[in-house]
């Protein structure tokens, strides 16, 4: 009897410990998710009328919406353009500043600086780089006698310009993770392989890279989520234009919700985004994790 009550008390104790986190998660993550899901099944009520239940009609609209597909395609290109590049650059920078080079503290700082800047501030800086007449890039091109490019105004260039800025912003952040991981690799591993005359290249692919795999995975997931989640720079740089050339999914959600006041359609796109991210997370935990060596 006594054992039973003490067991109960332990359970209660555990539940109480979980409660704050559970309440926060439920209030700010699960409830909104469910509300969004429900919202996506309605049409907005105009002039005070109640919203009308329409089932999957919003999804039907979505499939027929060419702008949505354009934006989804943009986002895919944006992801493919930013993720591998920023990860590769981050790894390269980390390897570079992890080596014994003079003033490496300074170089590390320099590489990390873009990360400390808020996205909005970074976008403002790049606004200056990209500006058609007075911009840095066009000034440089002009000095070389080349005609300038309308970096953000030309639909065929604008998305690339946005991608470049994002890579610049993200690489330094990911570098920090790689740097931490590199420093946790014992230097004797390098020495042991040096004694056998292993080339740097071979050591990188046979030892460093596999040992960095958990970090790569972590960074990859972060980069993927960021590709869908962070659109702050669009507000400054392009506002999704010209002609939706740089519009991304989340910015499109924002437009629908707050420019076109179509809350339920925005909810529908949000559900699609959540689905995509859920698939990504599942792939990560189910497949990649099992193949990765964790120390």
């Amino acid at each position: 009897m006594a054992a039973m009550t003490s067991y109960r008390r332990m359970q209660l104790y555990g539940a109480l410990l979980l409660l704050p986190a559970a309440v926060l998660l439920a209030t700010f993550a699960y409830l909104p998710t469910i509300a969004t899901l429900i919202n996506s099944l309605f049409l907005p009520g105009f002039r005070g009328e109640p919203a009308e239940f329409v089932g999957l009609e919003n999804y039907q609209l979505l499939i027929e919406d060419t702008t949505f597909w354009r934006v989804a395609r943009n986002n895919l290109i944006y992801a493919l353009g930013t993720i591998p590049t920023s990860i590769a650059i981050a790894l390269g920078m980390a390897l570079f500043v992890n080596a014994r080079l003079p003033g490496r503290g300074f170089v590390r700082m320099a590489y990390f600086t873009p990360t400390i800047l808020p996205m909005i501030a970074a976008a403002n800086i790049w606004m200056f780089f990209y500006a058609p007449q007075i911009g840095l890039f066009n000034k440089l091109l002009g000095a070389l006698g080349l005609s300038g490019v309308n970096w953000l105004g030309d639909p065929s260039v604008a998305l690339t310009s946005v991608i470049v800025m994002t890579v610049w912003k993200e690489a330094g952040f990911f570098m920090i993770f790689y740097l931490a991981a590199l420093q946790s690799i014992p230097p004797e591993l390098k020495e042991a392989s040096d004694l056998e005359g292993t080339s740097r290249w071979s050591f990188f692919w046979r030892v460093t890279f596999p040992l960095l795999m958990p970090t790569t995975l972590f960074v990859l997931i972060n980069a993927l989520i960021n590709a869908v989640r962070v659109v702050d720079h669009l507000f400054i740089l392009t506002k999704g234009g010209p002609n939706n050339a740089t519009n991304l999914l989340l910015y499109y959600v924002y437009e629908n919700a707050f420019s076109f006041f179509d809350r339920t359609y925005a909810a529908t796109i949000t559900v699609v985004i959540l689905l995509v991210l859920a698939v990504v997370a599942t792939v990560k935990f189910a497949i990649l994790d099992r193949r990765t060596h964790y120390q």
Binding site: E191, S193, H293
Partner: peptide, 27 residues
């Protein structure tokens, strides 16, 4: 020459067999 380290310096992600033949593969 070869060397045995105090910390052993084994490659944690490789099997015992791969650890042992690591140098032979390099060569």
């Amino acid at each position: 020459l070869s060397m045995v380290f105090q910390s052993y310096a084994l490659f944690p992600h490789l099997s015992v067999a791969d650890n042992i033949v690591f140098g032979l593969r390099s060569r």
